[in-house]
């Protein structure tokens, strides 16, 4: 399906101003809200997935490249710190973002 414009002409608005592209919010890169980022220590990580569950952004996934280890999609991570706080082995640290 075609994308919908954020500044459409009135003739370009979808019927009833509906949003016809499911999950189109993915285009909001909320990662730029972040002031610190989570870093996983793979030596301590037991790959339990608690961080995956509790992420309010739903942006922590088990990494494809690092088999089985979780990582945050920094395009969306707002840096709330919940993952680091909830990690049962305290393997996540938060690192300040540089300006």
């Amino acid at each position: 399906m075609a994308t919908q414009s954020a500044k459409p002409k009135w003739t370009e608005l979808a019927v009833g101003t509906a949003i016809t592209v499911p999950g189109s919010a993915r285009q909001n890169r909320t990662g730029d809200w972040r002031s610190s980022r989570p870093i996983w220590n793979h030596e301590e990580c037991i790959r339990c997935g608690v961080c995956v569950i509790f992420c309010p952004e739903g942006c922590i996934h088990f990494d494809q490249d690092q088999p089985g280890y979780p990582s945050a999609d920094l395009e969306y991570c707002k840096g709330c710190g919940i993952c680091a706080h909830e990690c049962p082995t305290a393997c996540i640290t938060t690192q300040e973002e540089e300006e």
Binding site: R26, Q27, N28, T30, C48, G49, V50, Y76
Partner: peptide, 22 residues
């Protein structure tokens, strides 16, 4: 903690929403 992986992955509410941090 090991059960966390069993949670369904069918995500119907995507990242990119504008909720506050945390």
């Amino acid at each position: 903690v090991f059960a966390a992986r069993l949670f369904p992955k069918d995500n119907r509410f995507v990242s990119g929403h504008r909720a506050c941090q945390g």
